[in-house]
Computed example of a mutant assay.
Amino acid sequence: MGRNPMRAAVTLCAAAALAVPFGTAFAAPSAQPTTRTQQTQDPVLVDCSGQPQIGPASYVLACGDGNSRLVSITWYRWDTHAAVGRGTNAVNDCDPYCAAGAFHSYPVTVRLDQPTAAGQGTGEPHFTRITLTYTDGRPDGSPRTVSYPLPG
């Protein structure tokens, strides 16, 4: 790592943080539909790069650094009021620091709700809150159920 290992670690973290938004924008499309048709009025889920999605198989929760993401999501409901699915929350423990940390997987139930009306923010209805309920284990210090505001 050269003469200054801390500088190298910070540089690696910064590079990873900058790469995350581009990774979701240029990733291969999932097998599930990610765009809406004109006839559909169901709200979308807006990702870190501002792209609308319906039924994504994965979703980055920590847009700045990618240290928390949902993977292997299976959606059971997606309508004008809410979306509900199951998946896995992959969370970096950042121990001793994020670049050297390890990802741990926790099964979760995912709920999207509080949709906006069409025309607000993105110009189309979108969910504004995500709630995760950990079903078997959870990250240290995390409550069983957590809610976060969504971009849009």
Rank of each mutant, 00 (worst) to 15 (best):
R86C: 01
L45K: 00
P52I: 02
E124Y: 08
A90V: 05
P52Y: 02
G66D: 07
N89F: 04
G55V: 03
T116N: 08
V110H: 01
R69G: 02
T40I: 15
G87D: 08
G64P: 04
A117E: 06
Q114W: 12
Y59V: 06
A90Q: 12
Y97H: 11
R129L: 09
Y76R: 11
G55F: 03
D95N: 12
P107F: 01
D42E: 10
P52K: 07
A99E: 14
E124S: 07
T122D: 14
T74S: 07
C98E: 00
N67V: 09
T74V: 11
W78Q: 02
I73T: 11
A100S: 12
P96D: 02
G123M: 10
G64Y: 02
Q51E: 04
Q120L: 10
R77M: 00
D95C: 04
R86S: 11
L45A: 09
H81P: 02
W78D: 03
Q114Y: 15
T116F: 04
G66L: 05
Q120M: 01
Y59T: 14
F127C: 04
V71Q: 10
P56M: 00
I130M: 15
P56G: 01
Q53C: 07
C94G: 11
C94S: 15
G119W: 13
G64C: 10
I54A: 03
Q51I: 09
A102G: 06
G123Y: 02
D93W: 03
G121F: 01
A62H: 03
G101S: 08
H81N: 14
S58E: 05
D47E: 07
A118W: 00
L45Q: 03
